[in-house]
Amino acid sequence: MHNTIHIKAFGMVAERIGLAELVIDHSGNSSELLEVLLVKFPVLKSVKFSLAINKKLVSGNQEIPSGAEIALLPPFSGG
C-alpha cells in the first residue's frame, strides 16, 4: 500500500481545482508537494495560496510527517 496524504482545499483554491479534498502519494516535504500540485493542477500557478501542515502555515521547505493534515488556503483578508 502506498503512503498517501490527505489534502483539503478551501475557498477559491478549491473552486479553481474543482475539489475540496484529494489524496496523493506522500511527497516527503512541502517543496516536493507544491511541485506535484502544480503539475497536477497547473491553474494553481496563477492562484495565490498558502500551505498549512497540521494547522500551521508553512514558510520555506518543511518535512511532512506521516498522517499530517494538509490544507491549501486562499489569501486571508482582515478587517
Rank of each mutant, 00 (worst) to 15 (best):
I53W: 10
K55E: 13
G60N: 03
P42K: 12
A68H: 05
N29P: 09
L51N: 04
P75R: 14
L44F: 01
V43M: 14
P65A: 03
G60V: 02
L38M: 13
S66A: 13
I24R: 01
V43N: 01
S59F: 05
G28P: 04
L57A: 02
L73M: 15
P74M: 15
S50R: 04
S27Q: 15
S77R: 08
V47S: 07
P42C: 10
L72R: 13
L51Y: 07
E35W: 00
F76Q: 09
S50H: 06
S30W: 04
K40V: 02
S31T: 13
G28R: 12
E63Y: 11
G67F: 00
P65K: 09
V43C: 10
A68C: 06
L33D: 03
G60C: 04
P42G: 07
S30C: 01
F76G: 08
G78Y: 06
L51F: 05
I24A: 02
L72Q: 12
F49N: 01
V43F: 00
P65W: 11
L73H: 01
V58T: 01
F49Y: 14
L37H: 02
G67D: 11
P75I: 11
P74K: 14
S30G: 00
S50V: 00
K45G: 02
Q62P: 00
N54E: 06
L37Q: 04
S46F: 06
P65S: 03
F41Y: 15
S50K: 05
N29G: 05
K48I: 08
E63R: 11
L37E: 09
E69S: 13
V39D: 12
S77I: 05
E32K: 15
V58L: 05
I53Y: 08
A71T: 07
S59M: 09
S27I: 01
D25A: 12
L34T: 07
K40L: 14
